[in-house]
């Protein structure tokens, strides 16, 4: 019961973006949130991080209402990787990562250095450390931002659990770095961090998550163990594409059954040649 939200509702104009959403992130576990575009995943993450206030429902962190936390206290325990980055000024990679240490109580310089070295190494950007951030590719930027949020909650503080919220961290990463990113999430969980991660690839969720919440149209469709939630028939219904499951060893893989997909409804709908 690290980060716990119940009956969350959020409207934007006449649109109900979240409706009666319950979610709990537990210490030491990776909790994946999946769902089609516009399902409300990012809105949920923004409310969980305290960036936005829900119109109804409550969020509590470590037993205290989220709004009762002082911003800095919260920042020492909870880090958020946003979906998009807004940094256009020419900080070096190392400077960006060091910004993550801002809310930390501040230890000896050597220790701070060591933390930055370690997270640079974890996400594999040590060789980019002196490069200017705006010169990096999209995937490299995501990795640098990941290093920054890891640095932010690197050290446990008191007895409260730390939380890491990642909004589509794998979206711009290559295959190898998608897995590296989720392995990092697992390692953080292994050190007691509660991890919430928005993902699109059900196979990544099946492989790396302890718990999955599946959302659609602002509501929770299913929540539980990955293999129970992410079934071919349920995903077919939600995404509107035929899904099939494969068994590879003792692992389940999901794939879109493109051979029975029907997107082609007549030549007249093709763009002109």
């Amino acid at each position: 019961m690290t980060l716990c939200a119940s009956r969350l509702g959020y409207r934007s104009g006449s649109l109900q973006l979240l409706d009666e959403v319950d979610i709990t992130l537990d210490a030491g576990r990776v909790h994946a949130i999946l769902g089609p575009n516009g399902a409300g995943k990012t809105t949920l993450l923004r409310i969980l991080s305290g960036e936005m206030q829900p119109h109804s429902g409550v969020v509590s962190y470590a037993g205290r209402s989220l709004s009762a936390w002082a911003p800095r206290e919260l920042a020492q325990r909870r880090a958020v990787l946003p979906q998009r980055d807004h940094l256009t000024f020419a900080f070096t990679v190392e400077e960006v990562v060091a910004l993550g240490r801002l809310p930390a109580p501040g230890g000896p310089a050597g220790e701070e250095r060591h933390i930055i070295e370690t997270v640079l190494d974890w996400v594999g950007v040590t060789h980019l450390r002196a490069r200017r951030y705006p010169q990096l590719s999209g995937g490299e930027r995501t990795r640098v931002q990941l290093a920054r949020v890891l640095a932010q909650i690197w050290q446990p503080l008191g007895d409260e659990v730390r939380t890491l919220l990642l909004d589509e961290p794998t979206a711009s990463l290559d295959l190898a770095h998608q897995h590296r990113c989720l392995q990092i999430a697992r390692r953080m969980a292994a050190s007691g961090v509660a991890v919430g991660v928005v993902l699109h690839d059900p196979n990544l969720a099946l492989h790396y998550a302890d718990h999955v919440t599946l959302m659609c149209c602002g509501q929770v469709v299913a929540s539980g163990a990955p293999t129970d939630v992410l079934t071919a028939s349920r995903l077919s219904g939600i995404y509107g594409v035929p899904m099939a499951s494969l068994r590879a060893g003792h692992e389940v893989l999901l794939r879109v059954a493109t051979e029975v997909m029907d997107l082609d409804s007549g030549d007249d709908r093709l763009p002109p040649a």
Partner: peptide, 15 residues
Amino acid sequence: NALLLGEAEAGHLGI
């Protein structure tokens, strides 16, 4: 400096 990361990001850093 933190604000250059974005307003939400600065908020997440406790500002």
